[in-house]
């Protein structure tokens, strides 16, 4: 009684968010929007532009899932989360998936009870220094003051790296990337450390990006990927295979422009299965046959998303590196669609 009264009242107020029952897919379909947790603002990965529209690499993953599940890539409610709130938001059902350059670690997967569905960006922690400092290696940073964003794995990696090399440093913890930039540019710290991709994205926003360099050392493995709650494997499968569809599409040469044509005229059976013209993959995953086609059509394949948001043509200018397809010597390797 108590419960129904409380939530009756809240529903009248229109403010009780939907239920987070075991079947996330049903909730998302009933709600008509996908609640996707993203960062509070990291240009290139997830940041609102001047019109308040979310853009970025992680955002594209959310949109692809929404396109696959709901048939509408814009039916996404982006929930900005901080390092502190992101896991609670996911655990409590406030968001359906988290795509917030989150590192896949043992304890997060096992102890915090989340399911990482894959890796959308292979990253590593790097250091940015002003060129004027004359530092060429992270091992030269003995005694330096280091800016770090709190609430991430970078703090722990940093402590490990300096301890392993037996050199000292002064940590300056900061809350947001914007404040880190401010501190670093004001010279309040000698070096700024976070994921190398984030550093490149940050450097792109500087007035004189050329005055700053990334040190060659990558001190940690940071496989970043979307994650969902533990215990809802159907939903986890949908997010996992949407991501795999984007990756496989690039491998198979399916792009946002030729996806319609490929779907009708392909001879490659795997492309046909992926795009739903052959087999019943869509039915198996609990969606319709065109789910992957819609995701690719609206967002492009992995390579297109990369090039559009963080690739070498953008101000962020990241090379594919580890994130190239396995056929090009990278680590991206989608399991077969069969």
């Amino acid at each position: 009684m108590n419960k129904s009264v409380l939530f009756g009242a809240l529903t009248v107020a229109g403010l009780a968010a939907g239920a987070a029952a075991a079947a996330t897919l049903d909730d998302v379909k009933a709600r008509g929007t996908l609640n996707c947790g993203v960062t509070t603002g990291l240009v290139g990965f997830a940041a609102p532009d001047a019109n308040g529209e979310w853009k970025g690499f992680d955002v594209a993953v959310c949109r692809a899932v929404a396109a696959a599940v709901l048939g509408d890539a814009t039916a996404v409610e982006f929930v900005p989360t901080t390092g502190k709130t992101r896991f609670t938001a996911l655990a409590s059902g406030e968001i359906d998936m988290l795509a917030r350059n989150t590192t896949w670690t043992f304890s997060r997967d096992v102890d915090l009870k989340f399911d990482f569905v894959g890796v959308n960006y292979y990253d590593g922690q790097g250091f940015m220094v002003p060129k004027a400092l004359g530092v060429s290696s992270a091992k030269d940073l003995d005694g330096a003051t280091v800016c770090i964003q709190t609430g991430t794995t970078t703090e722990l990696n940093l402590a490990d790296f300096f301890r392993a090399n037996n050199i000292s440093y002064e940590p300056v913890p900061i809350e947001t990337n914007a404040e880190g930039t401010q501190q670093y540019l004001a010279g309040a710290c000698d070096t700024y450390t976070t994921d190398a991709s984030g550093l490149a994205a940050t450097r792109a926003t500087f007035e004189n990006p050329g005055d700053h360099m990334l040190l060659p050392e990558i001190v940690s493995k940071e496989p970043l990927g979307p994650l969902v709650r533990h215990g809802d494997s159907e939903w986890g499968d949908i997010v996992r295979w949407t991501l795999n569809a984007l990756i496989a599409a690039e491998e198979l040469g399916v792009t946002s422009t030729n996806v319609g044509e490929m779907a009708t005229s392909t001879n490659n059976p795997e492309v046909a299965r992926l795009l739903g013209t052959e087999g019943t993959l869509g039915e198996m995953i609990g969606l319709d046959a065109d789910w992957a086609k819609r995701a690719i059509e609206t967002q492009g394949n992995y390579g297109e998303i990369f090039a559009q948001n963080i690739g070498e043509e953008t101000p962020i200018g990241l090379a594919r590196g580890l994130n190239a397809q396995w056929t090009d010597g990278g680590l991206l390797y989608s399991p077969p669609f069969r």
């Binding site: 390092g83 502190k84 896991f87 609670t88 304890s107 997060r108 102890d111 915090l112 709190t150 609430g151 991430t152 703090e155 722990l156 300056v172 913890p173 900061i174 809350e175």
Partner: peptide
């Protein structure tokens, strides 16, 4: 807000984030 390591920043900040024991 300024990165001073008081109790809110250590126990309620980094420790909370790293252990997830909210």
């Amino acid at each position: 807000a300024v990165g001073y390591a008081d109790i809110t920043a250590t126990l309620g900040g980094i420790t909370l984030n790293q252990t997830g024991r909210a």
